[in-house]
Amino acid sequence: MIMNILLWILIAVGIIHLVRRLFAGPKTDPSTTSETSRAVEILKERYARGEITAEEFQTMQSHLR
Rank of each mutant, 00 (worst) to 15 (best):
M1T: 06
I2V: 07
I5Y: 06
I5V: 09
L6A: 07
L6I: 08
L7H: 03
L7V: 07
W8C: 05
W8M: 08
L10C: 08
L10P: 00
L10H: 00
I11T: 08
A12E: 04
V13N: 03
G14T: 08
G14F: 08
I15K: 01
I15Q: 00
I15E: 02
I15H: 01
I15A: 12
I16F: 11
H17M: 11
H17K: 07
L18T: 12
V19K: 03
R20W: 12
R20S: 11
R20V: 15
R21T: 13
R21E: 12
R21H: 11
L22A: 13
L22V: 13
L22I: 14
L22E: 08
L22T: 11
F23V: 14
A24P: 00
A24R: 14
G25K: 15
G25R: 15
G25C: 06
P26W: 08
P26G: 14
K27Q: 12
K27M: 10
T28K: 14
P30Q: 14
P30N: 11
P30F: 11
P30C: 11
P30H: 11
P30S: 12
S31R: 13
S31A: 15
S31G: 05
T32I: 14
T32D: 11
T33K: 13
T33H: 11
S34M: 13
S34L: 15
S34D: 11
E35K: 10
E35H: 06
T36K: 15
S37A: 12
S37M: 09
S37W: 04
R38A: 12
R38F: 14
A39G: 01
V40P: 01
V40Y: 03
V40F: 06
E41N: 10
E41V: 07
I42L: 10
L43M: 04
L43V: 04
L43H: 02
K44Y: 03
K44M: 07
E45W: 01
E45K: 06
E45M: 05
R46S: 07
R46E: 13
R46Y: 02
Y47D: 00
R49L: 14
R49K: 13
G50D: 02
E51F: 05
E51W: 04
I52V: 06
I52L: 02
T53K: 03
T53N: 03
A54H: 04
A54S: 08
E55G: 05
E55L: 07
E56C: 00
E56K: 01
F57K: 00
F57C: 00
F57M: 00
F57Y: 15
Q58T: 06
Q58C: 01
M60E: 15
M60S: 10
Q61F: 10
Q61D: 01
Q61L: 15
Q61A: 12
Q61K: 15
Q61G: 00
H63M: 15
H63L: 15
L64S: 03
L64V: 04
R65H: 14
R65D: 10
